[in-house]
Design a protein around this nucleic acid. Structure first.
Lengths: 157, 157
DNA sequence: GCCAAGCTTGACGTTTACGTAAACGGGACC
DNA sequence: GGTCCCGTTTACGTAAACGTCAAGCTTGGC
């Protein structure tokens, strides 16, 4: 019996689904699209730690707004490794482009957060004056913190 | 003839499309979905500065990954203003939720940017050693800066 | 031996955010 | 008077990212 914390550890489709809060359909879909290619044991899929790492990247990519095909491109580029210098140069350009895009997105997000904070403050003031009973309390930091430490992301949607 | 910089300024659909780099179809679609409601001059749409501001918010929302219906919700909440305290409380909760989501997204983006930077550095080193001719130069800061000052965002896609 | 649980592969349905084409109206220009 | 050009509505098409059956295999438990 293998040490469950070792890289030799493997996962069933369901285990990964539960851990990352996705459906089996999604994982099969990613496989269809060439983003994952787990081993098989008979017909059943067997995911290893590399598949798990790729899934992490896939989901992160999704969270920052990349399409599956864009994610696939990046994953493929990684895979190519040191195939040819020309490929590497192309890869470098792509990465730089992506960085610029992401930085712009970051600015948008900061902007949005700023506006939302202001709106919250103004709302809090109004409510504090008129209906302090209705004033929802700020989040429980303990909970938020634990969720983050657990790697849980249930904020989406 | 009105001062074009004043809030009284109005816009045709095409003017807004060019300024924000969207298609007429998109603006009509947003209207269908209740995100915009420009005045009419006969059949023709006439957008004022408030419509323009809403469009700015719509596009920013899109950039940070909100769906049109989510954007509509937020816009509607703004519109409600000080209708009822209960509505305000709901709005406050929604805004706080949205902030948490956006902060998580920002972390993802930072993470992704970090990884991409590392990958770039490693690629640059390899290329510098083997094929310095193929090494693409970092972006022209002048260009990037001017684009930003112009409010141009052509990084997407 | 059988049934339920969990896996598999199709295959069709759904939502979102538009694209695209058809058919029409009204000014401006030549 | 024709013809662009810009605008309109209506309507069907599409790509992405899955959801949702349907039908079948296999494996453990009773």
């Amino acid at each position: 019996m293998p040490d469950l914390r070792r890289p030799e550890r493997t996962y069933t489709i369901r285990q990964l689904c539960i851990e990352f809060k996705v459906t089996p359909r999604a994982l099969r879909f990613y496989e269809d699209k060439g983003l994952l290619s787990p081993a098989r044991e008979g017909l059943n899929r067997v995911y290893n730690y590399r598949d798990r790492a790729r899934l992490t990247l896939i989901l992160r990519g999704k969270r920052v707004g990349l399409s599956l095909s864009e994610i696939r491109e990046i994953l493929d580029l990684y895979k190519l490794g040191d195939d040819g210098a020309a490929q590497q140069a192309k890869m470098l350009r792509k990465f730089r482009e992506r960085i610029v895009t992401l930085e712009a997105q970051r600015e948008d997000i900061d902007h949005a957060i700023g506006e939302l904070r202001e709106a919250c403050e103004s709302l809090e003031k109004q409510l504090a004056g008129n209906h302090p009973d209705l004033l929802p309390k700020a989040e429980n930091y303990d909970q938020v913190l634990r969720a983050r430490l657990d790697g849980v992301h249930e904020f989406a949607k």
